[in-house]
Simulated assay, not measured.
Amino acid sequence: MKNDLIERYIYAVTKRLPQKVQKDISDELRTLIDDMLLERCGELVPEEKDIRVVLTELGTPEELYEKYNPDNKKCLIGSPYYS
């Protein structure tokens, strides 16, 4: 499903990730969001409120970025203390 809100969310998650993993992670997120919307709405077309609920369940883009960031464990003092 192509939606501006979903695309902006995915961009916010992947924009600071290394270039070599951005496409894979954005494809993975699209699939995950589509699956969550299908589970939530069934065969009905998801409305914007459904999309917002699914994205809220995933967490903020910053939280999701931290999960995908390959460099997040390479410092002595880091997240959650410093971004």
Rank of each mutant, 00 (worst) to 15 (best):
K74D: 11
D34G: 05
T60P: 02
R30Q: 14
D24H: 08
G78F: 11
E48L: 07
K15P: 01
R8F: 07
E39G: 09
S79Y: 15
L17M: 07
R16S: 06
I25G: 02
K20G: 01
G59D: 07
D27H: 11
T56V: 00
K49S: 13
I6K: 04
R40C: 00
E63L: 08
Y82Q: 03
L55C: 05
D34K: 10
D27N: 12
L5F: 02
Y9K: 11
E57T: 09
V13L: 01
D34T: 12
L58K: 10
L58A: 10
K23L: 11
T14A: 10
R52M: 12
K2G: 05
E66H: 14
L17S: 02
T31C: 03
Y65K: 10
V13K: 02
L55D: 01
K49Y: 10
N72C: 07
E63S: 08
D27R: 13
I6L: 01
L29I: 12
S83E: 08
Y9V: 06
L29K: 11
P61T: 07
D4S: 13
V45D: 07
M1V: 15
L44D: 14
I77D: 01
R40Y: 10
E57N: 07
V45E: 11
N72K: 15
G42W: 08
V45H: 04
I51Y: 02
L64R: 15
G42E: 03
E28A: 13
E63T: 09
M36I: 01
V53I: 14
E66F: 13
E48M: 00
K20Q: 11
L38I: 12
Q19S: 09
Q19Y: 08
G42Y: 06
L29N: 08
K20S: 12
I51N: 02
N69C: 12
K49T: 14
A12E: 09
R52N: 10
E66R: 14
L64W: 05
Q22W: 04
K2S: 10
I33G: 01
R16Q: 05
L44S: 14
R40G: 00
L5W: 00
I10L: 04
L44G: 03
V53M: 10
L44P: 00
E47S: 05
G59L: 09
K2Y: 12
P70H: 04
S83V: 09
P70R: 04
N72H: 10
V21N: 03
K23P: 02
T60A: 09
L32Q: 15
E47L: 06
T31A: 11
K2L: 08
E47F: 02
E48R: 03
N72M: 08
N3D: 15
T60F: 08
T60M: 08
Y11T: 06
K73M: 01
Y68Q: 06
E47N: 06
S79E: 10
I51R: 05
K23M: 07
R16E: 05
I25D: 02
K73S: 07
Y81C: 06
Y11N: 07
E7S: 12
D4Q: 14
D35I: 06
N3T: 06
P46D: 05
E28V: 03
L76P: 02
V21I: 15
P46C: 09
D71H: 14
V54S: 02
T60S: 15
G59Q: 10
I51W: 03
I10D: 01
Y68D: 01
I77G: 00
Y81H: 11
D35G: 13
T56Q: 04
E57K: 13
S26F: 01
E62R: 12
T60R: 11
L37M: 12
G42F: 05
